[in-house]
Each structure stands twice: as structure tokens, then as C-alpha cells.
């Protein structure tokens, strides 16, 4: 076996198409579960805020789902859904629920009591209050949860490589690299994953800043 360089830049240059496709697949594997997970956990959080008794069991169930090994989940779902996106999306979505449910509940709980009371006293209906007062004020903590869930999902999604070429994402580089003793692919997959996680994190920080101009006003005030 001839001596290979640590990173074969020429190979990467020749396979930029693959890089773009798999990066996009990976983004898909992250964005869809986080988005779905957010919608589901938002519904659960609203329920838990209205009926506090729901909070305990929901935390327990989402916690239990979180402990299922991802490989096992993929292996279990593959016979049912085949090599479809669903096989990856379902477990990845369930993994986000624990984080997102808790951060969404915290977000609602962070709305000051006097603000809620004022809204109630002024004749907001429950729905209007949720939409115009509680949701906007819960944004900072909700986004904190989304950032955490996104970074986690980027990492977990590498396991989706078992889905193969159509949906496998960056994990395929790593798997193939391991199988063919080609470190370039391993490094490529790992570095791109980290870069993707990092970029998403920055993106959401940006979104939070944009979505909460009042917090910026406060920061400028105290500066």
C-alpha cells in the first residue's frame, strides 16, 4: 500500500458535486426534524402551560424517546419505510422533542406575570394573547432550544448514512472513509458537519437578534 497524504485535496476537488449534494442532504436531515420537532413541541408546550399536569409525563416520554439509540431506531424503521427520508426523519424528530419541549415551556414561563395579567385585563382573548404577547416574548428561550437541537441533530444525522446515496448526507463520507481506509473522506465528513452545526448556530443567533428588536433596545440602553 502506497503512502497516502493525510488529506487528498485533489480528490476533494474532483468530488465537489458530491460535497454540495451531501451537504444539502444533511441540511435537509437537520432542518426537517428540527422544524417538525419545534411544531410538535410547541403544541405540547402550549398544552402543558394550560394544564400543568401534562408537563411531567411529557418530559418523561420525550426523555425516554431521547434514550433510544439512533442506530437501533434506523434499523427498526428501515423495514417499514425502506431507504426513504422518513426512516431518518422520524427518529431525528423525536430526539429534538426533549430539548425543544423544555425550551418552549421555559419560554412561556419567562413571560412576566404582570404582562400576562395586563393582557388579560385589557381583553385579549386567549388566542390573541398567545399570538401577540406570549409567543413573541418566548422567542429568546425558544431559539436557545432550537440552536441546541440543531447542533445535536447535525451530529446525529451522520448516522443516517445507512440511507445511502439519495438521503444519506455527510455521514456517507465518514462511513465510506471508514470502509475504504480513506481518511480524506472521514475528515471531510467530520469537518463539514462541524461547519454546518456552527453555521446554523450563528444563523439562529442572527434570527433571534432580528426577531427581538426590543432586547437590542435594552442592550443599547444599558451599554
Amino acid at each position: 500500500m502506497e503512502d497516502k497524504p493525510l488529506v487528498d485535496w485533489a480528490w476533494i476537488g474532483d468530488h465537489l458535486d458530491d460535497v454540495v449534494v451531501r451537504l444539502f442532504q444533511h441540511l435537509q436531515l437537520t432542518a426537517i426534524p428540527v422544524a417538525l420537532g419545534f411544531v410538535i413541541s410547541l403544541g405540547l408546550a402550549i398544552w402543558a402551560i394550560r394544564r400543568p399536569i401534562v408537563y411531567g409525563p411529557t418530559t418523561a416520554i420525550t426523555g425516554l424517546l431521547y434514550t433510544i439509540p439512533s442506530i437501533a431506531a434506523f434499523a427498526f424503521l428501515r423495514p417499514i419505510f425502506g431507504l426513504s427520508l422518513l426512516t431518518a426523519i422520524i427518529p431525528l424528530t423525536t430526539y429534538t422533542l426533549l430539548i425543544l419541549f423544555r425550551s418552549n415551556v421555559s419560554g412561556f414561563q419567562s413571560v412576566p406575570a404582570d404582562v400576562l395579567e395586563a393582557a388579560e385585563g385589557m381583553g385579549y382573548t386567549r388566542r390573541e394573547r398567545l399570538r401577540r404577547v406570549e409567543l413573541p416574548l418566548a422567542i429568546p428561550l425558544m431559539i436557545t432550544g432550537i440552536r441546541l437541537a440543531s447542533v445535536t441533530t447535525v451530529g446525529l444525522a451522520t448516522v443516517a448514512a445507512i440511507l445511502g446515496d439519495s438521503f444519506g448526507g455527510l455521514g456517507q463520507f465518514i462511513t465510506e472513509g471508514l470502509q475504504t481506509f480513506f481518511p480524506t473522506k472521514i475528515y471531510l465528513g467530520a469537518v463539514l458537519s462541524v461547519a454546518l452545526a456552527f453555521s446554523l448556530d450563528i444563523l439562529f443567533v442572527r434570527i433571534e437578534l432580528w426577531a427581538t428588536p426590543w432586547a437590542r433596545a435594552r442592550a443599547e440602553q444599558t451599554a
Partner: peptide, 11 residues
């Protein structure tokens, strides 16, 4: 309705 903590909407 006016309350002591005012309860202005911070956002």
C-alpha cells in the same frame, strides 16, 4: 386597567 407593575408589553 392599570396595575402596579404596569405590565407594559416589553416587545
Amino acid at each position: 386597567y392599570v396595575i402596579q407593575q404596569v405590565g407594559l408589553f416589553p416587545h
